[in-house]
């Protein structure tokens, strides 16, 4: 019986399709639960910063609050403004949500625990994260509202600007690792936390983190939805499930960028000390705790910093991050070349 089953799942195309489907579900379902609880953690962290209690009524310690919120959003009426472009208006939140999900296909959760171990993993992630802007810009245009449109324009300009420096950050990491494969990037950082790239590439880690705040439209870069000027930016006209999809997509994007940060700079699934186990099961644990740490920093920043002015945001992206990251690429390449540390393939 067992050999027949193994044969079915490895050789039959239907069996392989079923395996791929199961793998996708095994990533997506925990991710959605993580997104739900990220909203909870976010609110708890802000509450602690402001000396409040945060959600504590629904369920023990307010743990069921995300599900109550989700249920409330689902039961609300979906409103499509009469002058909106209804097809694009509905498609836009789907694009945001989908791009946040499909990127997870290449993220390695542990040694060999990855859906698609492709050779251009970093480029794939970079490509998918650059698609997220379409959800925002289409939503802004399709809403046919000035607030939504201005928010979308701001967001598009902001995301395109900060992608440039993220690109240079990725180049420095792949110069050090010698591969575009995310699993190989993690393996290149094996052997204790002093081998992680966050130490030699510390400036790039900072630039990466700040740029990922800008990419996900989080404070201090939440200009696209700054409520004082633009109501709620590109989300102004959205309600019910389309709004929920935007919300989920944004949080999934945050978790994704944290995961990428953990893979590139914090050694992915590797244990912080070399004698600790980093096999498949423990690897998932280490990886999750690194993501959780970066997500905490996300909430911490939001609870602490005021919003940037738009010209300051553009100045930071183009006049500070771009030259610094470009110089660091040249520096890293020079050090690797003349120090004899160029990774062998």
């Amino acid at each position: 019986m067992l050999p027949v089953l193994i044969d079915f799942f490895t050789n039959n195309w239907l069996g392989r399709a079923l395996v791929i489907l199961a793998e996708c579900l095994a990533v997506t379902v925990p991710l959605l639960v993580a997104v739900a609880y990220m909203t909870y953690v976010d609110r708890k962290v802000w509450a602690s910063i402001q000396l409040r209690r945060g959600p504590n009524v629904v369920g023990p310690f307010g743990l069921l609050q995300p599900f109550a919120d989700g249920l409330k959003l689902m039961l609300k009426e979906t409103i499509v403004p009469s002058s909106a472009n209804s097809v694009l208006f509905i498609i836009a939140p789907m694009i945001t949500f989908l791009t946040a999900l499909i990127a997870w296909a290449v993220v390695p959760f542990g040694d060999g625990v990855v859906i698609a171990n492709i050779n251009v993993g970093i480029l794939y992630l970079f490509a998918i994260s650059s698609l997220g802007v379409y959800g925002v810009i289409i939503a802004g245009w399709a809403s046919n509202s000035k607030y939504a449109f201005l928010g979308a324009l701001r967001s598009a300009a902001q995301m395109v600007s900060y992608e440039v420096s993220i690109g240079f950050v990725l180049i420095t990491v792949l110069l050090c690792a010698g591969s575009l494969n995310l699993s190989k990037v993690v393996l290149a950082q094996s052997g204790g936390f002093w081998h992680w790239y966050c130490l030699p590439l510390l400036p790039m880690f900072v630039i990466y983190f700040v740029s990922s705040l800008a990419e996900t439209n989080r404070t201090p870069f939440d200009l696209p939805m700054s409520e004082a000027e633009l109501v709620q930016g590109f989300q102004t006209e959205y309600s019910s499930m389309p709004f929920a999809l935007f919300f989920l997509g944004e949080y999934a994007n945050m978790i994704l960028l944290s995961a990428l940060g953990a893979v590139l700079f914090l050694g992915g699934w590797m244990a912080p000390l070399p004698f600790l186990p980093s096999n498949a099961a423990w690897g998932v644990f280490w990886f999750a705790s690194k993501i959780a740490f970066l997500l905490f920093v996300f909430s911490w920043t939001k609870g602490t910093l005021p919003r940037y002015r738009y010209d300051q945001l553009m100045r930071l992206g183009w006049k500070v991050f771009l030259p610094v990251s470009l110089a660091y690429v040249v520096l890293t390449a020079a050090v690797l070349q003349f120090g004899g540390w160029v990774p062998k393939s």
């Binding site: 251009v120 480029l123 794939y124 970079f126 490509a127 998918i128 650059s130 698609l131 802007v133 379409y134 810009i137 324009l153 598009a156 300009a157 395109v160 992608e163």
Partner: peptide, 18 residues
């Protein structure tokens, strides 16, 4: 394929749409 998506879809077409 990835460069096509990054350069044309991720940057050029965004500015075009803009």
């Amino acid at each position: 394929a990835m460069i096509l998506v990054i350069v044309y879809v991720g940057a050029v077409a965004v500015l075009f749409l803009f």
